[in-house]
Simulated assay, not measured.
Amino acid sequence: MNIYNNAVYMEDLKNTIDMTVGIEQLKNKKILVTGATGTIGSYIVDTILAYSHIYNANICVYAACRNNDRYSERFSQCPCEVHYVEYDMLKDIKFDMDIDYIIHAAGNAYPTAFANNPVETIVGNVNSTYNILEYARKHSTRRVLYVSSGEVYGNISADINGVKEEQLGNVDVLMSRSCYPLSKRTTENLGVSYNKEYGTDVVIVRPCHTYGPTITKNDNRANAQFIRNAIEGKNIVLKSSGEQMRSYCYVADCAAGILTALINGKSAEAYNCSNPDSVLTIADFAKTIAQIAGTKVIMENPTNRDIANRSPIRNQILNAEKLYNLGWKPLYGIEEGIRSVLNILK
């Protein structure tokens, strides 16, 4: 499928451009995006390229990917020029060029990786961020934006308005599943420490349960599985009661939030990226997809692997007021977002 020939996807990109506050400040800049083939990273690359093309903004985009095969699979049909950069978060940086902005979105972000490769998840997050920050410091990069996660909050009681950036809950340090939230906490602190010690300009965004047409093949999060089943005309399978509350955010809104924080955010601070109109249970998210796709939700008993892959966090609801105060506002409600995904992927 050539996603760039899809009218719905191109309209989403234009909406993201319109939602990004101050996007004109990216004109004539060089921007590196790590994790450029991931759900969020690839959409950000496409947004910047679309803006540069439509508005003749002369932006040079470097897509940092693990290998050329993954880059080609994702961007070979892209009508705009994007520069491939070989990048493996478990290895030292090989490239050497001046960059204005770095969006660091690389990292294992799906349950199978947490279960099977917890060590690589920790080392990858921490070492890669250290290397990126060192690179930025030595090359006088204007700003690094670190894409963190709503999982940093751990288990915390929150009302429907969600947790704010200064609040933190408990994370079990003796559970290997905690490799992800704990390493994200560490890398956030590494960023603010670089800011204090070296003056490196770093801003952090914490997305939560982002979904969209750019989901990857390896992504086995619940929302990604639900979307794939719907596209294939299969029943959507729930392997729990699905009563956990989640803040969902369509990738077009998420990308606009990240870019808005990149341009307008305050250094050494974090911003939640979530849609207050898209807070619902996992079961209701599945039912909404099924209703729109014309399929059904069925229950199955979970395997031991399914249980191991589950997030231990019962409710993940983020308060995005701080990002709202930068002028960002999400456009896609849950039904609009799901309809867009299904229209694009079908």
Rank of each mutant, 00 (worst) to 15 (best):
F114A: 11
N189D: 10
S140C: 12
M299R: 09
I292L: 13
T141N: 09
R74M: 04
G35I: 01
T281F: 03
E188V: 03
L32W: 11
Q77L: 14
N170G: 03
A293M: 05
L90K: 08
I344E: 02
R314F: 11
E335T: 06
A36V: 03
Y71T: 03
T295I: 02
T34E: 05
G337R: 04
T37D: 04
S240A: 12
P276Q: 07
S274W: 05
T303E: 12
N6I: 00
G154P: 07
S148P: 08
V202M: 12
A136Y: 01
K94V: 11
D46E: 09
N325C: 14
T141K: 08
I59T: 00
I160M: 15
N5T: 14
G337M: 02
D172H: 07
M299N: 07
N15V: 15
V279Q: 10
T34Q: 03
W328P: 03
M1R: 12
S274H: 02
S42E: 00
A308V: 08
Y84L: 07
Y55V: 00
C80H: 09
S240C: 05
Y332C: 02
G35V: 03
G41I: 07
I99D: 03
Y87S: 14
V8P: 03
V8G: 07
S148L: 03
M245P: 07
V21K: 11
Y101T: 01
L318E: 11
L280I: 10
N264S: 12
I44V: 09
I292R: 07
R74E: 08
T129S: 12
M175R: 13
F114G: 13
H209T: 14
H139P: 02
G191L: 00
V126F: 05
E300F: 08
R246W: 07
M299Q: 11
E336N: 09
C208N: 15
E134I: 11
S42L: 07
V82T: 05
S311Q: 05
F226D: 06
V61F: 13
D100G: 07
K138N: 13
Y101W: 02
I132R: 08
V205R: 07
S157A: 12
T16E: 06
D18I: 14
S52T: 08
V173N: 06
Y43K: 05
C249F: 10
N116H: 13
G41D: 00
V147M: 09
M19H: 11
N116L: 15
N5W: 14
